[in-house]
Each structure stands twice: as structure tokens, then as C-alpha cells.
Amino acid sequence: MRTCGATSGGPDLAGVDLANQSVIQGAVLRGGVSDGVPNGLPVDNAYVRLLDSNGEFTAEVPTNLEGQFRFFAAPGSWTVVVLAFGAREEIKVQAEKGTPVDLVIQI
């Protein structure tokens, strides 16, 4: 199933003070194609961990019904680790204020 019109993975950013927040968010999808457009089935029982630049655990959130997650980080280097049944993905990202990191993660 392809999500029409959506170009980002994470939850709606309406109401988020992007100028002051370093958002890292995304969606975890299964069985889709990695073409930059969210497609596939949302994984609503994945766990997403945020590690700092030293690899230290900072936070962990479960995905929502749409397979989405969001962190409010600080500017800098972070690693996002996705854990789900039969899958583990690790993605290095650079967070900054103003422009959210928005990931589409296929497992």
C-alpha cells in the first residue's frame, strides 16, 4: 500500500516549534520499496532507540499505529536504532534546528 501525497515519514509537524527544536522522526515500514516515498505496511510494534554521538543510550520510544516515531534531540550527530521482530536497522543522522530529520525506514 502506498501512502499518497506524503513525502515524509514521521508524524505531522504542525504545532512543532521547528525553529527551536532539533527533531528526528520517521516511519518504520515493512514490505515496501525503498524509493524515498513511504510505502509498505506500518510497523506499529517496533522500538526506536536514540543513541548520542558516543553511542550512549538517550531515549527509546515505541512506534505508533502508523509506524511513526519522533524525538526532540539537540543539534549534532545521533544514531537511530530500529528494533522490530526479525529486524534491526541503524541509521546515523545529523540533527539541526529548523530542519527536521525525517526518515523512512524499510525493514
Partner: peptide, 8 residues
């Protein structure tokens, strides 16, 4: 619960 879910 996490390990339970990760093990499917």
C-alpha cells in the same frame, strides 16, 4: 514486553 514483541 519489548523482548516479547521483538521475538514475535
Amino acid at each position: 514486553r519489548k523482548l516479547w514483541e521483538l521475538k514475535g
